[in-house]
């Protein structure tokens, strides 16, 4: 009995997109924050989103996590247009996404183990023992085995971030979002977290989207990098292509050259929008 061989993916075949954003426009009140963003995130890649303060990278991440409503444009996550999902479908989609927040966002009233177990408890019908085993396994992955009975307040900054990673991956998500994973950590711990992100992509086959402003971290982990500037995409490409870019703003970002950013609050808000202020004092 002969077997038909599986079609092999060739190097020329187009990568599968797990996130497709087209012409995304968002506002906070009257202010336009993202101005027609279009980007794709490929399956199994680590996409790093970079940009200066006020560039819109955190806003973009919140939209990618389906936490905010956009003004116009489309966003497809894992093939589903999020505008067309009802509540139950959105909950189903969210179970395929994991998020490690900047400050960890662990529930302070629960132990580390209970925090990690919560998604299993809420979305599966597994018995308690199985959930506990799965929780311990995920904590082992982030090298926090044995810490399940501690409260978040008893952990260091790096440990809180790792516990947040454990919670984010406990449902084996297809996409993992990380918001500033290295922020506030010493270089050694930050480097360990970078290794952890690479491990999660390689060992668990996750697509990872990381928002960071740490250049070393970005170049270490990124397959591709998106640079945002004033609500628009300045660059999308590999780290090598980024280094080779002759765009002055990108070079300033890479070489940590300060721009003349001295401005008052009104100018700062106008920079975000390019528009006149919505409210004029009398």
């Amino acid at each position: 009995m002969s077997e038909t061989p599986e079609p092999q993916e060739t190097e020329t075949s187009a990568p599968r997109n797990v996130i497709e954003v087209r012409d995304l426009v968002t506002h906070y009140g009257d202010r336009m924050i993202l101005k027609g963003i279009s980007m794709d995130v490929h399956a199994d890649e680590i996409m790093v989103i970079m940009g200066g303060s006020g560039s819109g990278k955190s806003t973009l991440l919140r939209h990618l996590m389906a936490l905010e409503h956009h003004t116009s444009g489309t966003m497809r996550i894992l093939g589903q247009d999020i505008d067309e999902l009802n509540n139950v479908e959105l909950v189903d989609l969210r179970q395929k996404l994991g998020v490690a927040f900047q400050g960890g966002a662990l529930f302070s009233s629960m132990t580390v183990g209970e925090n990690v177990m919560l998604p299993l408890f809420e979305h599966t019908k597994l018995d308690r023992k199985t959930m506990e085993i799965m929780t311990r396994m995920k904590l082992q992955v982030v090298e926090l085995g044995g810490f399940e009975n501690l409260m978040p307040s008893e952990l260091s900054g790096g440990m809180i971030k790792r516990a947040a990673f454990a919670r984010a991956i406990v449902m084996d998500p297809k996409i993992l979002f990380c918001d500033e994973p290295s922020a506030g950590l010493d270089p050694v711990v930050a480097s360990q977290l970078d290794d952890l992100i690479l491990l999660l992509r390689d060992a668990l086959g996750m697509t990872v989207v990381v928002v960071t402003h740490e250049l070393d971290s970005a170049f270490k982990i990124a397959d591709r990098i998106t640079v945002l500037d004033r609500g628009e995409i300045l660059f999308i490409g590999t780290p090598d292509e980024l280094r080779a870019s002759d765009n002055q703003r990108i070079q300033n970002l890479l070489n940590r050259v300060a721009e003349d950013d001295t401005m008052d609050a009104e100018t700062y808000l106008n920079r975000l929008t390019g528009d006149e202020p919505a409210y004029r004092p009398l």
Binding site: R62, L67, R94, A105, L106, F107, S109, P119
Partner: peptide, 20 residues
């Protein structure tokens, strides 16, 4: 106090993204 603290610590966002 509980809900306020959870909000500023992004715990409410965490609930949303966990589908809760």
């Amino acid at each position: 106090a509980r809900i306020g603290t959870m909000k500023i610590n992004q715990e409410v966002d965490a609930l949303y993204v966990m589908g809760i």
